[in-house]
């Protein structure tokens, strides 16, 4: 095991990272970042003892982080946990995590990305459907324009929980996948900007730089060919979160900020 393990969740999912660290009996801090969102999981002798992500803490934070499909991670060994919030045995946490990952696989057959929108079904369910209060909160936000990600953000919930509710409501016949309203044409950025970004980022991160950039572009639901100008700062913020060295990160941000101003 190297002194510090780091990489991208698109290449190595969190479940696999935790299995690896647990099987090796590692102690330390696993930091995760996905744009502006951050999370931390602490292990002691291979056991998960504490986790925090946004509003979530303990086991729920681990499950919430397992819902991230993209983002960077870094494990620093021999860092102690500030508290012990996880009481469930690690084996069970990993089993539950694996179950949720599998559920995600099922859900993705209906909701392939968090960019999907839903509308109320004009036909409705064939039988009686009971809704929990939380499920109603999700239904109330369905308007054929809000995406899964936007509904989750609106409710302050993780995307997995919201997607699970939407999946159930689609299966029950209450909702159907809607067509996203045609977005007005937005100014896009040119290839010259991406050549600059690839070059500067590769200098800091090495040959994997462009791969990480592609992951972050996909996470924003965009492509290099038609990347909107109003998302470019968000992309730079997400990409620079992968740079662990604060000095290098700040220098990279300064260069790219200048490039944004010259667009």
């Amino acid at each position: 095991m190297p002194e510090a393990l780091s990489g991208n969740l698109a290449q190595l999912p969190l479940l696999e990272i935790l299995k690896l660290l647990s099987s090796e009996g590692q102690t330390g801090r696993l930091s995760l970042s996905n744009g502006a969102s951050k999370g931390e999981i602490f292990l002691r002798e291979g056991n998960v003892v504490h986790a925090a992500s946004g509003e979530h803490i303990s086991e729920e934070a681990v499950y919430s982080l397992m819902g991230w499909l993209q983002g960077g991670f870094r494990f620093v060994p021999d860092v102690g946990a500030p508290e012990e919030s996880v009481t469930t045995p690690t084996e069970q946490v990993l089993l539950e995590g694996a179950r949720r990952v599998q559920q995600w696989g099922e859900i993705k057959k209906v909701i392939p990305s968090t960019d999907v929108v839903f509308k109320l079904s004009p036909v409705g369910a064939s039988g009686t459907v009971n809704l929990e209060a939380y499920e109603w909160q999700v239904v109330a936000r369905v308007n054929a324009a809000r995406t899964v990600a936007q509904i989750a953000q609106d409710l302050g919930e993780d995307e997995f929980r919201v997607a699970k509710v939407l999946y159930r409501l689609v299966s029950a016949g209450l909702l159907e996948v809607g067509e996203k309203p045609e977005a007005p044409l937005r100014p896009t950025i040119n290839g010259g900007f991406f050549r600059r970004l690839d070059g500067e980022f590769t200098e800091v991160m090495g040959p994997l730089g462009p791969v990480i950039i592609d992951d972050e572009i996909a996470a924003l639901g965009e492509t290099r060919e038609s990347f909107p100008r109003d998302k470019v700062a968000q992309l730079i913020e997400r990409v620079s979160a992968e740079i662990q060295d604060a000095e290098k990160r700040s220098r990279f941000q300064g260069i790219m900020l200048e490039a944004i101003r010259n667009l």
Partner: peptide, 16 residues
């Protein structure tokens, strides 16, 4: 406000 652009600017300016 473009909060990402603002945060980038703040990081660069405050580091300086």
């Amino acid at each position: 406000v473009d909060i990402s652009l603002l945060r980038l600017t703040l990081n660069v300016v405050t580091t300086r």
